[in-house]
Deep mutational scan, measured.
Amino acid sequence: LEELEQFAKTFKQRRIKLGFTQGDVGLAMGKLYGNDFSQTTISRFEALNLSFKNMCKLKPLLEKWLNDAE
């Protein structure tokens, strides 16, 4: 859980630094990986307001997006 919290915090900082909005991330993930995510979902991930199971599902996809974006 602590690792997920740290990743969510780091993800948000890096996303902002790269100049992407939460909506941008959701759209890009849909185009790149075929998984559409709403701005709300990205927001809830960053705020740790998703279930643990959903957080765990999203984390590898967001890590991949972040690596591709950088």
Score class of each variant (00 low, 15 high):
residue 58 L to M: 14
residue 24 D to Q: 11
residue 68 D to E: 11
residue 15 R to C: 01
residue 45 F to T: 01
residue 9 K to F: 07
residue 21 T to G: 05
residue 20 F to T: 03
residue 22 Q to R: 12
residue 25 V to D: 02
residue 33 Y to Q: 07
residue 7 F to R: 02
residue 61 L to E: 06
residue 10 T to H: 14
residue 29 M to F: 04
residue 11 F to M: 04
residue 5 E to D: 07
residue 55 M to E: 02
residue 36 D to G: 06
residue 12 K to I: 12
residue 61 L to G: 06
residue 29 M to K: 01
residue 1 L to R: 15
residue 9 K to H: 02
residue 29 M to H: 01
residue 21 T to D: 04
residue 29 M to G: 02
residue 2 E to N: 15
residue 27 L to M: 13
residue 12 K to G: 04
residue 54 N to I: 15
residue 33 Y to R: 06
residue 19 G to R: 05
residue 60 P to I: 08
residue 49 N to K: 09
residue 50 L to M: 15
residue 17 K to Y: 07
residue 17 K to A: 13
residue 32 L to A: 12
residue 52 F to R: 13
residue 36 D to R: 09
residue 55 M to T: 05
residue 30 G to H: 07
residue 46 E to T: 00
residue 12 K to H: 06
residue 53 K to R: 14
residue 11 F to T: 02
residue 13 Q to R: 08
residue 33 Y to A: 09
residue 9 K to M: 06
residue 3 E to L: 06
residue 39 Q to M: 08
residue 18 L to I: 03
residue 64 K to N: 11
residue 2 E to I: 10
residue 64 K to A: 09
residue 38 S to F: 04
residue 26 G to D: 08
residue 70 E to Y: 02
residue 36 D to E: 10
residue 16 I to P: 00
residue 47 A to S: 09
residue 64 K to V: 07
residue 21 T to R: 04
residue 66 L to A: 09
residue 64 K to R: 11
residue 10 T to Q: 12
residue 57 K to R: 09
residue 13 Q to N: 08
residue 12 K to S: 09
residue 44 R to L: 11
residue 62 L to V: 06
residue 20 F to L: 07
residue 3 E to F: 04
residue 30 G to L: 11
residue 70 E to K: 14
residue 46 E to P: 00
residue 50 L to Q: 03
residue 46 E to L: 00
residue 31 K to E: 15
residue 15 R to I: 00
residue 2 E to F: 12
residue 52 F to G: 08
residue 6 Q to K: 15
residue 68 D to W: 06
residue 36 D to I: 12
residue 10 T to W: 04
residue 1 L to I: 13
residue 29 M to D: 01
residue 43 S to N: 13
residue 19 G to C: 15
residue 29 M to L: 11
residue 36 D to P: 08
residue 5 E to C: 05
residue 9 K to I: 15
residue 68 D to P: 02
residue 20 F to A: 10
residue 23 G to H: 14
residue 43 S to C: 10
residue 49 N to I: 14
residue 49 N to T: 15
residue 4 L to M: 11
residue 41 T to E: 04
residue 8 A to F: 01
residue 30 G to K: 10
residue 31 K to G: 07
residue 69 A to V: 14
residue 3 E to D: 13
residue 26 G to M: 09
residue 7 F to C: 12
residue 42 I to K: 01
residue 40 T to I: 05
residue 15 R to Y: 02
residue 56 C to G: 09
residue 47 A to N: 15
residue 38 S to T: 14
residue 13 Q to G: 06
residue 62 L to M: 12
residue 52 F to E: 10
residue 39 Q to S: 14
residue 31 K to L: 04
residue 53 K to S: 12
residue 22 Q to N: 05
residue 20 F to M: 10
residue 40 T to D: 04
residue 65 W to H: 02
residue 62 L to H: 00
residue 26 G to V: 12
residue 46 E to V: 00
residue 24 D to I: 03
residue 45 F to G: 00
residue 27 L to H: 15
residue 49 N to S: 13
residue 48 L to M: 12
residue 19 G to H: 01
residue 9 K to V: 05
residue 58 L to I: 10
residue 33 Y to K: 08
residue 19 G to M: 02
residue 63 E to A: 15
residue 21 T to W: 01
residue 6 Q to S: 11
residue 31 K to I: 02
residue 60 P to R: 05
residue 54 N to M: 12
residue 43 S to A: 15
residue 39 Q to D: 14
residue 6 Q to I: 12
residue 64 K to W: 05
residue 63 E to N: 04
residue 38 S to E: 10
residue 65 W to M: 03
residue 66 L to E: 02
residue 51 S to F: 01
